[in-house]
Amino acid sequence: MSFVDDEDAPPGETVSLTLATEHAGGRLDKTLAEHLPDLSRARIQALMAAGMVTREGKVLTDTSAKAQAGDYELLIPPPEAAEPQAEAIPLTVLFEDPHLIVVEKPPGMAVHPAPGTPSGTLVNALLHHCGSSLSGIGGVARPGIVHRIDKETSGIVVVAKSDAAHKGLSALFAAHDIDRVYVALVRGAPSPAKATIVTQIGRSSTDRKKMAVLKSGGREAITHYSTRTVFGQQKKPQAARLECTLETGRTHQIRVHLASKGCPCLGDPVYGSGPPTPAVREAMAQAGLSRQALHAAVLGFVHPVTGEALRFESPLPPDMAKLEALLSAL
């Protein structure tokens, strides 16, 4: 589970760059991206298409033109604060009171609207279910959201309905005073079978859409894992079921950490380097697994308003449950 991680530049920000002669000559969009690591190449291309990139006051729109030495300016327009619309999307509610709601998020549903996912999100469903009672602290696009799980990760999410609950839950997450357990079905099996992974996690230097374990920089990330079941021969396991307990909540933390151990989540399209065995691939196909096999199975915390100790458990969704059954036959 990971805290909301904004990448948008501040509203109306102007980014300036002076390109030296020795750095000129390459393709313009690529050169600008290399010198402006906070902006992806695709983002720069979009800004150029919108007439937001200039050199010496001249608007540049040809992304494939050769970069010339000189002073560049890129105007980052303010993000559109689109008001999410209520949508009648079914929800599995585990708990609800006037202050918060705990739900099971299915795979394929984003937690909140974002570029490319303006609707069909958990926020849209909650607006229909809760009406106007969601906490407003999260902003226009993220009312009530204090944490999130990846779009293709299934499992338990808590959302604030009151400002008091929002502040209290945020404090619990910041203090790591939340019990969070994930179930992962992974390729192979980690060695040792039980351990704690402590690394720095930050943006990959080669792909800004990915996170990576960094030698320096980034933020500390701590994951405790335990192997519950090994599938296949013990000496050469083909897959395993792990339980992962989060001590921190970095973006893609479990997926990055397990991949760093050589045991990525099965079906992970981003961090799942290297194919599983043919038998495991066949099991994945039969189970209809089309996403990373990762499920937020347990969420426990003290209610920030009432003081009640709450703990929720969620069984594996159908695709992971079927996959586990098929793996058990290996």
Rank of each mutant, 00 (worst) to 15 (best):
L47Y: 06
T117C: 06
E83V: 15
V59P: 12
A33F: 07
V123P: 04
H128F: 14
T121L: 13
L28Y: 02
R41T: 13
P90T: 07
H112A: 07
L127G: 04
T54G: 11
D97A: 01
A69L: 09
G70T: 05
L60V: 10
D38T: 13
N124R: 08
E73G: 08
E104M: 08
T63L: 12
V93P: 06
V123F: 11
S40T: 15
M48D: 09
P106W: 12
R43K: 12
E34G: 15
S119W: 02
E56W: 09
V93R: 15
T92V: 12
S64N: 14
V111L: 07
A67S: 12
M48K: 14
G120T: 01
K66F: 02
A81Q: 15
P79I: 05
P107V: 14
G116C: 04
A33H: 02
L91G: 02
L60E: 12
V103R: 01
D29Y: 05
A46I: 01
H35S: 10
A88C: 11
T92M: 00
L94W: 00
G116E: 05
G51N: 01
H128Y: 08
A82F: 03
A114E: 01
L47Q: 02
G116W: 04
T31L: 10
L60W: 00
R55N: 06
R27P: 01
D62M: 04
L39R: 05
L74S: 06
H112E: 05
I101M: 10
A42F: 11
T121W: 11
T92P: 03
T63C: 09
L74D: 05
L126M: 10
L47E: 03
G26S: 09
M109A: 07
A49N: 09
A88K: 05
R55K: 14
V102W: 09
S64K: 15
M48S: 04
E87K: 05
E56G: 14
S40R: 09
Q45A: 15
E83Y: 07
I44N: 01
Q68V: 10
A42C: 01
K66T: 00
E73R: 14
L100M: 14
L32Q: 05
A33Y: 02
